[in-house]
Structure formats: C-alpha cells, structure tokens
Design a binder for these strands. Structure first.
Lengths: 253, 253
DNA sequence: CGGAACTTTGAAGTCAATCAAGTGCTGTGG
DNA sequence: CCACAGCACTTGATTGACTTCAAAGTTCCG
C-alpha cells in the first residue's frame, strides 16, 4: 500500500506545488493521469554542492533543471576566458534553456549554494509535450518568460548608470523572492559581489560602493550578503526613475 | 483570400525556400501534405512602409512575422520613455517572439525600410505544431536560436568598450548577411547611427567616432550607411580580442 | 584560532557621455 | 537647375562616472 501510485502521485503533486513545475502542469487543467505522465519523467538528484555544475558549455542538452531550493548562476565564458553571468536562478526557475537553439549548452550552470534539483530529461519532456497540447503551450510560455527575463536583463545593462543598475537588480530580486513566497524585504544574497558585478556589467568595487551608498541613504541595510530593504518605494524610484532626475534639477525641468 | 490553393502552394513553397520559414518546415522532413497545412496558414501582407509598425507594446500575440526583404527593429520603451533597441531583424529572422511569455507584446516592431512580410497567425501555428511533432521541435529550436541571439547581444553589452562593441556589431551583421546569401563584406546598413547606438548602449556620437576610427585604421570603408569591410580578419580580432590587449599600432606593431 | 575568500575603502587615471558646432546628404519647391 | 530646409552624420572640447590599482578590513569555516 505504501507503494501505491496514488501516494506517489500525491507526494509529487505536493512537491511540484511549490516548485516551478507548477507553472508547467497545474494551470494546464491537467488530469491525474496526465500529471502522472509528467511526474514519471521527473528525476531527483542528490544534493548539489556549492560550486558544482549541472552542465558545461558544449554539453548536449540532456535535461532541463529546476532547483527546489538553493540558487544557481548561468555563466557564459567568452573566447578570451572572461566570465559573463547570464542569469541567476532561484528555486522554481528553469535552468538549461540556453541549449534549445543548438542542442548544446552555451553556458555553464554553477550552484551558488548547496541545492536540491529536479531533473527533467528533455527528450521525454518534449515527447510528453507533443502528446499534451496544453503542456506544450505551457512550455512555450515558460520559455517565453525566460526570454522576457533576458530582455529585462538587457534593459538593465543598456545606458543605465551603476546606481540604477544596482537598484534594479535588488528590486528584481525582491520581486522574485516574493513570487516564491519568501520575504521580499529581507533575504540573503546567494551570490558574491563579483557575481553581481559580472551580471550587471560593472566592476565589483562599483557594486560594493553602490550598496554602500544605498545604505547611506537609508534605502537598504546590508551586512555582507544579508540584505534588508528598508525603503522599497525609494528603491523602486531609484530603479525606474534614475537618481539624477530629482536630487539636482538643472535646466532640463 | 480563397484562391486556387495549388497555385498558392507552389508559390509559397518557392517563397519559403529562401525565407526563414525554411528552418521551420524543410529540415523537418516534412511531407507535401504537411507542408500544405503550414502553407495554408501563412499570410502575405501588403508592403510595409518605412516607419510602420507590425505591433506595439501591449498588443496581443496574434501572429509572428518574417520579413521577406527589408529590415525591422524591435524596440522596448522604458517607463521613462527611453527607447532600447532589442534587436534588428534581417530577412528570414522571426519577429514577434517577445510576446510568448505573457501573450502580449513587450516591444514594438518598426520597419527600417519598406518591406514585405509573411504573417503566421500564432494560434494556428501552435495548433499545427501540436499535430506535427517535428514542426514543434523546429519551433523550439527557432525560439532557442532567438534566445541565443539575445545572449550574444548581452555579451556585447557587458563590460566591453565602445570600439569592441562596434566591431562585434559589424562582425555579427556581416555574418547574418552571409547567412541569407548576401555579401558579407559590402552592404548598406538599414538602420541609423542612433538605432545602432541604442542597440549597443552607446551615444550616437560614440558610434560615429567608432566607425571613423575603424575607417582610419583601414578596417572598413564607410560612407553614410554604405559599408565595406576591407579587413575582415582585423575586424574579427578587434571584435574578439579587444584592441588594447596586443598591438597598440603605435610603438610595437 | 588562523587562513582564505570576500568585501570595503581610497586615490588616480581613462573612456565615453554630453554639450555644441559644423558638414553633408536628400528631397522639395522656386 | 539651383536654393533651401530638414535630417543624419561628423567632429571638437569638456566633464563626470566608472575602472583600475592598491591596501586594509571582514566574514566564514575548517
């Protein structure tokens, strides 16, 4: 009885209920049978240690991954060996889509903390999706959201100054923590200043100074990687309105 | 428009052979019947004039588009009204994927030149794809390639200096012209310096100076929007190796 | 406790943005 | 055909932001 599929299904459903796959299966109005098709192909992995990689550039696209807890970064390495942080992945966000185009990963996915991940073999996912149009559509949507996040990232990098980028980064991160049911005002950064710098296209010293200034201004409280957002409204203003518009208004008003 | 399907099919097939949809149907080993399913949903539009828009931010995702000739830019407009050029689209490159995530466009697509476009209603494409697994896979791949291009764009913007970005831009553009069977060494830029600047995250003056310097160094010949690449090897080196690493064409050559 | 990794802080230099003319193309009307 | 307006592009000078180099301070773990 303890091996009864009903129990397994129940536990999986509970598991997926607060991991990103909820977006893949639940809103599709999926039946128990169909859900099981999906559940059957999801694999668990032993915890991944900090610094371990899920895949490396050049690896074939075997699976996509979702962290159940912990965090990852995806890094693309230029021909000169310089690292560029392409994205951070919190629990529930899909990892591995970078290989969709060529069938081969462009980036490496590195664990920032010890983490538990679900692994979904891609060919099986693809096969199941072809049988379940609603799942296929969900898959497209998830991918589209990931594209949207990339575009947001672009928006952060283009013609924005350091303070603005940092505010935008913190703002976006808070939003994402809120989405996974964690505090949006108090959290521990899973990544180093260096990682943030490589994500924002800044020098790490600039990131450090930016944090310092935000603290000076009473917007955040930061000790090492522990962050508390004291003034979310002001943070939002800094992120969207640019800091140089208000404080000193010269001719252009 | 209901005309003789057979004739339409023939012309479309010829048409698709050198437009981006070739990537959608041809490699899938698609049969004549299946091809027709696809061809049936592709619509032509009257030529789009320079400055016209295919869609605007907030528009529902009705269709994806492919230019048969001409060029487009997709622009996302920040809350402060600043324009950010998200991408340029040459003939054969899909336009409109930005709405996949939310079902609503985030960007606007503006014609840079007069252009002919094919319009593929998205729900129909999605429906046909669900019936043709091979088409579905192709669709995923196309989307993945678009994600890859976005990541390349990211790579251009992060921590690269102006000269490098411009070289990278020209290099990438040449590559894409080559892919569509046009000269990779001599072409006319469809976009303004201002568009390029907004794409590269630079001021337009900086772009102009960058072009000037490349010309001074004998790498390119540029008159207005007409560009000739004189030294592709050097351009490639500038794009990937950074100009300040090695020969500072002053003292030690 | 000690060491390594990470973070903060300071000072100096550089690159690109900005402001400001000026030049050259394109098309239109006299 | 030329004059002229409008726009796109180029060029110059200045300023400010960020990087870089350097060093001290902190946190995290074994």
């Amino acid at each position: 009885m303890s091996e009864a599929p009903v129990l397994d299904l129940a536990s999986l459903r509970r598991g997926c209920a607060h991991c990103s796959l909820q977006q893949l299966c639940l809103p599709a109005g999926i039946g128990a049978q169909d859900l099981q098709k999906l559940d059957d192909i999801v694999r668990r992995r032993r915890p991944v240690e900090r610094g371990e990689r899920l895949f490396r550039p050049g690896d074939a696209l075997n699976a996509v991954y979702v962290a159940r807890d912990g965090a990852f970064k995806t890094v693309s390495i230029s021909e000169e060996g310089e690292e560029q942080v392409v994205g951070f992945h919190l629990p529930g966000e899909l990892i591995g889509l970078d290989a969709l185009g060529a069938g081969v990963h462009r980036c490496e996915a590195v664990a920032l903390t010890t983490a538990n991940v679900c692994e979904v073999p891609f060919d099986q996912l693809s096969f199941v999706a072809s049988q379940l149009p609603s799942l296929q559509q969900q898959l497209l949507r998830i991918i589209g959201q990931s594209v949207g996040r990339d575009q947001d990232h672009l928006g952060i990098l283009v013609r924005r100054q350091a303070g603005e980028r940092i505010a935008l980064f913190l703002h976006g991160l808070a939003e994402r923590y809120r989405n996974i049911g964690q505090s949006a005002t108090r959290f521990k950064l899973p990544m180093s200043r260096d990682d943030i710098a490589h994500y924002l296209g800044l020098a790490l010293e600039t990131v450090s100074r930016g944090f310092g200034k935000l603290q000076e201004d009473g917007v955040i409280e930061v000790v090492g990687r522990q962050v508390e957002i004291r003034d979310p409204v002001e943070l939002n203003r800094l992120a969207h309105n640019a800091e140089h518009e208000e404080p000193r208004r010269r001719g252009r008003a």
